[in-house]
């Protein structure tokens, strides 16, 4: 008899398999990262195809298999996908979060409760639209790296512990460094940028929300570099993240009548949210950031 188990999970990735199946990568609460086959979910009559889309927080039952498990039943806990996909900047930020979570849970079936809770909270925060998506992404990246054991320091010296704030920032040494520990080529970000990063790490949202756009840009550059430094492999989705004030990357030909600035799409998000609220169960909603 194959072992059957049930767990809460976030869908990280869904890849096509054969005619109508999918391989889904799940980050579960108790079983870490798991890959499973979901049979027939691409057919329009599938009962749980919609619940196995990326960004979904689900309650899932799986059959244990030799290399891949098999999805047996799925219930929705948090349907974040629709709200996130209805806003392109949020979608690109959320995709980078999923890819980072996948990278930081390298070994399959190794429990990663903190990473699960952090990602669930991050996706929930993104779907609630309380903060600018780039800030939520950066907060998630710093915190998930901290959980993975690479907590950066934004005030005291990361090497000798001398009380800060310090001017220099070194990726290799793990954050702010004092003048005597400073290695050659260390960055010198603006003090406000370091304060913003610190606010994102500790969850001081009033300060983070009040930050200037150029400080946010500098902060996200540092966070992206810090992430790439530690995970070693490239996080592909980061390239596509649309930051505050970005425009669509397509160059529109000169003879096309476009009234710049480009506005955010008017998809009826309120209606989607109302539909979601109607089905949102209160099982185990994760705490937002």
């Amino acid at each position: 008899m194959p072992a059957v188990y049930r767990d809460d999970a976030i869908v990280l990735r869904a890849q096509k398999l054969g005619e109508a199946d999918r391989i889904v990568t799940l980050l579960t609460r108790e079983h870490g990262r798991v890959r499973a086959v979901a049979k027939g979910v691409r057919k329009t009559m599938s009962r749980f195809g919609a619940r196995l889309e990326p960004f979904m927080l689900i309650d899932v039952q799986l059959y244990e298999g030799r290399s891949l498990d098999t999805v047996n039943q799925v219930e929705t806990i948090g349907a974040y996908g629709l709200t996130i996909a209805a806003d392109y900047a949020r979608y690109t930020a959320a995709t980078a979060m999923l890819e980072t979570a996948e990278r930081l849970t390298e070994t399959e079936r190794e429990p990663a409760l903190q990473q699960f809770l952090l990602l669930a909270g991050g996706l929930r925060t993104l779907s609630q639209k309380a903060h600018e998506p780039g800030l939520v992404l950066d907060a998630y990246l710093i915190r998930s790296l901290s959980v993975a054991g690479w907590a950066p320091s934004f005030t005291d010296c990361a090497r000798c512990g001398q009380a800060g704030p310090h001017r220099a920032f070194s990726l290799a040494m793990g954050g702010s460094v004092c003048p005597s520990c400073r290695p050659p080529g260390a960055a010198a970000p603006h003090p406000e940028t370091l304060r913003l990063l610190s606010a994102l790490l500790t969850g001081d949202w009033p300060s983070a929300d009040a930050s200037e756009a150029r400080r946010r840009r500098e902060a996200s550059g540092l966070v992206a570099a810090y992430l790439q430094w530690h995970v070693e492999r490239r996080v592909r989705s980061l390239r596509w993240v649309e930051r505050d004030g970005d425009r669509p990357s397509i160059n529109v030909p000169a003879n096309v009548p476009v009234n710049v600035p480009v506005k955010v799409a008017k998809i009826d998000v309120a209606a989607i949210e109302r539909a979601q609220a109607a089905v949102a169960p209160t099982l185990d909603d994760p705490e937002p950031f």
Binding site: A14, E53, P54, F55, G81, L82, A85, A86, D87, Y88, Y91, P248, I250, V252, V256, P257, V258, N259, V260, V262, K263, V264, A265, K266, I267
Partner: peptide
């Protein structure tokens, strides 16, 4: 009507609406 498809539609709607077109899904 999956996540990638919805996100692509969102992106295109944002790009095309300012051109004064009727954009439907």
């Amino acid at each position: 009507p999956n996540l990638e498809g919805e996100a692509t539609a969102t992106y295109l709607a944002r790009l095309l609406k300012p051109m004064g077109l009727r954009v439907t899904r």
